[in-house]
Design a protein around this nucleic acid. Structure first.
Lengths: 219, 219
DNA sequence: CATTGTTAATTGTTATTAACAATCAAGCGC
DNA sequence: GCGCTTGATTGTTAATAACAATTAACAATG
């Protein structure tokens, strides 16, 4: 390899979204090493040139290390760089964000979830990463099936409705929402399966399997 | 700096869009060094940790080296990585795309412009970068003022209309287009300035200066 | 100097779509 | 059965977009 000028640190950082108590939350980790040892931060790590196929593989590795399984939805967010973002010097961080249904998390994991409006101060440039991740999530939620990935495999129409309202942050008409979602075919009803409770049973739905491909045509 | 594992090559590659003869084109460069010496490729280069503030600065440097001035619109696209994209080994490329009015280019520069439907075979993973850049441009064109950056500082409504049709690739109603564009306030008429020709003079418009900020709320 | 051609800009009409409000349906507890 | 709560649907109105046609403004032409 020819170029002899200094090569920067290359890392990945991940913004892991979930919804707890009807609030959009981020999973943070207590850092085990300096710099910022013991501080809460976004899960991240260095890219291992020998074992990671690419930065997405590195991100998946980091996410698995945090939650113990593969995230249902993971997408590259933005690449942050510069001399000031890390005290160790000029670095590059390829940031990813992921959506994780709360139902897949156990207690020890949800204990480290913080509502996005009440995050602790974050080290490095993690505030910028978080801001960008929320921006992207909100933006995409309006025209895609993204928020559905915050729900378990099956869900009711009203649960989906609430999730959309929470991620976008605006009120949505029930009837119109229903129409649009069903028209776009991003979810299918699960035949003769209902959520039973104290009231009228609600039809259960699941993501149509072509959703991810249809979605990736965007952006 | 502690981590002792191998650090990858970090570079930037840029997809420079312009419109020539009503066709969306990309500016390519003949490579001056191996690998792929003399082949046409996307303009790119290594990130200089010492002189580039961040990858965006590196991208601006590359773009200036190609066209001789700063691009009116430049945006980070995606970060590509892996062991196979460059024969020199595992590498990271932060890709950017830019929009450049053809009127700012001179003859020697337009000579290296190729319509996106008739590109030569590109080295590295530049095909993927180009595909992603077109995808992004098309996607954003539908809900933003992006295509206006392919025009000179002032332009007529019909010129803007045509640019939108070309970048999105679908026919747009004249009257509806007019309404929407003016309603969104992304352009302003230039008082008492008209494009004169063999026919009825056309009102000239320019981008409203708040466009970029309004636009960046998206994505 | 009217006629014609060409592009600019506007208007009106119709069809779609979304927003709003109300109603109907289905279970449970009492 | 009756009221309560949540699910699901319907209908009506308002806002938007699509389509078609018209008017406006000039230059070139004979």
């Amino acid at each position: 390899m020819d170029p002899s000028f200094p090569r920067p640190l290359v890392m990945v950082d991940t913004a892991l979204f979930t919804i707890l108590d009807e609030r959009l939350c981020l999973l943070l980790t207590q850092r085990k090493e300096p710099p910022f040892e013991r501080k809460l931060a976004l899960p991240g790590g260095f890219v291992h040139v020998d074992e990671d196929a690419d930065t997405e593989a590195a991100a998946r590795r980091v996410v698995c290390g945090k939650i113990g399984f593969d995230a249902p939805y993971l997408e590259q967010l933005f690449t942050f760089s510069g001399a000031t973002r890390d005290p160790r010097g000029w670095s590059v961080s390829v940031a990813y964000y992921a959506l994780i249904p709360a139902s897949l998390l156990d207690r020890s994991q949800t204990a480290e979830a913080f509502p996005v409006e009440a995050l602790p101060a974050l080290p490095f440039d993690h505030d910028r990463i978080v801001a960008k991740a929320i921006e992207r999530l909100r933006g995409k939620a309006t025209y895609s099936s993204l928020p559905a990935f915050l729900l378990p495999a099956t869900f009711t129409m009203n649960e989906l409705h609430r999730i959309y309202e929470q991620t976008i942050g605006v009120r949505l008409d029930k009837a119109s929402f229903r129409h649009k979602i069903l028209e776009q075919g991003i979810i299918d009803p699960v035949p003769s399966q209902f959520r039973i409770g104290a009231h009228r049973p609600a039809q259960l739905y699941r993501l149509a399997n072509r959703v991810l491909t249809a979605f990736e045509r965007k952006i």
